[in-house]
């Protein structure tokens, strides 16, 4: 058993320490808001906050996050300013990329409360979106500052 801190609560999980965090979150803890996209850090769909930093959970082993604070999209409870702004700007189409995008945006705003548009775009370059929702997302994040 490995003990983790996820969204402020202590959790015990049975997965092998080499298991990518993503599968532990989705299948053991039922936190399916973190999505699988590529499995090797190239798309951002699986981003979570690890000690406040947006990181890929698909290639981060469980052993790496022991003793660290993990926040998933569920931890924001739909109440974060970024989430509200995304709703206001209707900033998605299929929405599959959005959990990861929210985590990148939250991480950015926690370090830089007034990012310029170019900084928002740069911070989101690790998040891919196939539906072309980019500009609405950027407008929403600028609005959430």
């Amino acid at each position: 058993m490995t003990e983790l801190e996820v969204n402020g609560a202590r959790q015990r999980v049975a997965a092998h320490p080499d298991t990518p965090l993503l599968y532990v979150l989705r299948n053991e803890l039922g936190l399916v808001g973190t999505r699988f996209g590529c499995g090797n850090g190239q798309c951002g769909a699986c981003f979570v906050l690890i000690d406040g930093r947006a990181m890929a959970s698909c290639d981060t082993p469980l052993s790496f996050v022991i003793g660290k604070r993990i926040t998933t999209i569920e931890g924001l409870e739909g109440e974060h300013a970024v989430q509200k702004a995304l709703v206001k700007h209707q900033a998605a189409q299929c929405g599959y990329c959005m959990s990861g995008i929210v985590m990148s945006a939250v991480s950015l705003l926690s370090k830089n409360s007034k990012p310029a548009e170019s900084e928002v775009r740069e911070a989101l370059d690790r998040n891919l979106c196939r539906c072309g929702s980019h500009n609405r997302v950027v407008r929403a994040i600028l609005d959430a500052r």
Binding site: L31, I73, E74, L76, E77, G95, M98
Partner: peptide, 9 residues
């Protein structure tokens, strides 16, 4: 959209 931004299933 709200449930997608909230990360619901």
């Amino acid at each position: 959209l709200p449930r997608k931004f909230a990360g619901e299933a």
